[in-house]
Nucleic acid binder design. Structure first.
Length: 221
DNA sequence: CCCTGATTCGC
DNA sequence: GCGAATCAGG
C-alpha cells in the first residue's frame, strides 16, 4: 500500500476531524494504526488532542531511555542550547501578502466576532435565539456528519488555512470535494459546518446509533 | 488489559 | 519515506 493523494486526503481529513488513528487505519484499509500516526506526523499533522498528552506537564518529559534497547543503541543527547525564553506564543502571524487589495479590516473583524473557541461554540444566528446568558452546557465538541450538498467543487489542491475543509462525498470518488467556504477563524471549517461538526456531546447512555462519519462512513466493500 | 498518540529507527 | 516496535499515559 502506498500513500496516494486520496489516501493522504482521507488521512488528513479524518485526523483533523478528530478520528482516532485506529479508525483512520480501518477506513483506509490494509494499513496499521502506527502507519497512520507515522504518516500523520510526516505530514505535519501531529499534536492533536491525545488522551495521553492531555494532562501532561512539560517538566515531566522523559527521553524514553530504556536500559536495554532491543532495536538500537540509545542516543545520548548532546545537551544542546539552553531554552531561549524569548518566545512569546504567536497564534497566527498570518503575513498577508500584498494582493493589491483595498484595506478592509472591517470585514474580517466582523467574522472574528462570531468566532468562538472550542468549549464555547456559538450557534449561527444569535438573532434568532434569545440572548444565551447561560448558553450551552460545557460539553465536549465531537465530530458529526455533514448534511450539506455544495455545488462548488473545491479540490484538495484548493485547500488552505482559510477555506472550509468539510468533505463532500467519499475520497477517491470523482465528485469528491470540499466545502470551500471561508473558515470560521480558528477552525478548519466554515461557520456553518462548524455548527455541524461540533455538537454537544450527549451522555453515551442517551445516544443510540453512533453518528456516521463525515466521509459517508465505512465504505461497503 | 483495553485504548490512545508519540517516538524511534531499521529498512 | 515507511511502519513495526516500543514507549507513555488514560
Amino acid at each position: 500500500m502506498s500513500w496516494t493523494e486520496e489516501r493522504i486526503a482521507t488521512l488528513t481529513k479524518m485526523w483533523e476531524s478528530g478520528n482516532t488513528a485506529s479508525q483512520i487505519a480501518e477506513e483506509l484499509g490494509g494499513i496499521s494504526r502506527n502507519a497512520v500516526i507515522g504518516k500523520a506526523h510526516r505530514l505535519g499533522l501531529k499534536s492533536r488532542p491525545s488522551p495521553v498528552k492531555a494532562g501532561e506537564s512539560e517538566a515531566k518529559s522523559k527521553p524514553k531511555t530504556k536500559p536495554a534497547a532491543p532495536r538500537a543503541a540509545p542516543k545520548p543527547a548532546p545537551a544542546p542550547a539552553p531554552v531561549p525564553p524569548a518566545e512569546s506564543a504567536a497564534p497566527e502571524p498570518a503575513p498577508r501578502a500584498p494582493e493589491n487589495r483595498e484595506p478592509e479590516p472591517e470585514t474580517e473583524r466582523q467574522q472574528i466576532a462570531r468566532s468562538v473557541g472550542p468549549g464555547g461554540f456559538l450557534r449561527q444566528n444569535p438573532g434568532e435565539q434569545g440572548p444565551p446568558s447561560t448558553p450551552a452546557p460545557p460539553r465536549r465538541l465531537v465530530p458529526a456528519r455533514p448534511s450539506e450538498a455544495v455545488a462548488d467543487k473545491t479540490s484538495l489542491l484548493d485547500l488552505n488555512d482559510r477555506i472550509c475543509k468539510w468533505p463532500i462525498g467519499h475520497p477517491g470518488e470523482p465528485d469528491f470535494h470540499f466545502c470551500g467556504e471561508k473558515v470560521n477563524p480558528g477552525f478548519p471549517y466554515c461557520v456553518e459546518h462548524c455548527g455541524h461538526a461540533y455538537q454537544a456531546q450527549l451522555p453515551r447512555r442517551d445516544r443510540r446509533p453512533p453518528p456516521p462519519l463525515p466521509y459517508g462512513g465505512p465504505r461497503v466493500r
